[in-house]
């Protein structure tokens, strides 16, 4: 029963995509949109084939995915550590939290050229860019999560004679799990954004670089192909996080929505 439900849930969005592709296919025919503006789906498919089976795109996919994963890990681990510290030490919270929130108003995309100057054209600048973008959602959600415990549980643990360390690991962290995953979910999408921005600005590898290069050649079909690959990576990554979320935080029903703070 459940598997049938799941199958339908999987097929419905695919049907939507199929319809959109059909509209795209016939739309450009009917309105006679020139192929150098919007390529037909067939041309994009052909470009995908060229890149994936021909193999020219793989090094770029690897470069992009590497940047996404490393930047994501760096940003999220820093966010988790810092919010843990802040939640335990009140002075630190009052000193650091407002500063981080203020920094958040800087559009980090605008830093991309500076980062390239500082960290070079390769992995370095991408990782820093992605880490910067991923940090905040993960940080804010974790901070909120670490405060969302049931105070009676803390009383109970103190009465048992639990140490601060035990209370942190046994009560606060599991209580925050739902919020932490909400943050990780937002960050994973932003990691994609950060990588592509860094690659568009200046890079020698990666899908963002391919898009920029194809733009110079007016190879719109290849640009579209890269966007399709990026979208696929994004969907897979966020589905993966969701799957882990559901497995790890099994006790929270999906209807009990966790707070999500984006930006």
């Amino acid at each position: 029963m459940i598997t049938k439900e799941r199958l339908i849930n999987l097929l419905l969005p695919i049907a939507t995509i199929a319809i959109l592709v059909l509209i795209w296919h016939f739309g450009i025919k009917i309105f006679q949109v020139p192929a150098y503006l919007v390529p037909p789906p067939g041309a994009v498919l052909e470009a995908l084939q060229r890149g994936l089976i021909g193999g020219t795109l793989w090094p770029h996919i690897v470069a992009t995915v590497t940047a996404i994963i490393s930047g994501y890990l760096v940003g999220c681990i820093m966010a988790l550590l810092l919010s843990a510290l802040i939640s335990e030490f009140d002075v630190l919270e009052r000193a650091v939290y407002p500063v981080i929130v203020a920094f958040q108003s800087i559009p980090k995309v605008a830093l991309a050229p500076i980062l390239v100057v500082w960290f070079g054209f390769d992995l370095g600048s991408k990782v820093v860019m992605v880490a910067l973008i991923c940090f905040f959602p993960c940080f804010v959600n974790t901070s909120i999560g670490l405060k969302s415990y049931n105070p009676e549980l803390i009383d109970l643990y103190r009465a048992m004679g639990a140490s601060r360390w035990q209370i942190f690991w046994r009560v606060k962290v599991p209580s925050a799990a739902g919020h932490i995953f909400a943050g990780l979910q937002i960050s994973v999408v932003l990691a994609l954004l950060g990588t592509v921005v860094a690659e568009l600005v200046a890079s020698r590898r990666g899908l963002g670089h391919v898009i920029a290069a194809a733009g110079l050649d007016f190879d719109v079909a290849m640009m579209f192909a890269c966007v399709v690959i990026l979208a696929t990576i994004g969907v897979l990554a966020s589905q993966l996080i969701q799957l882990i979320h559901r497995r790890v935080v099994f006790w929270e029903s999906r209807s009990a929505a966790t707070t999500v703070v984006a930006h």
Binding site: E152, L153, L156, A162, Q166, R170, V171, P174, V249, F250
Partner: peptide
Amino acid sequence: VGIVFQQPTLLPWRNVFDNVLEPIRVQ
């Protein structure tokens, strides 16, 4: 000292058995 509150205050992420054993594990 053992305590029972107005609300059950169990750990949602532990099963019944582990909830009962929790004070022992903490100590």
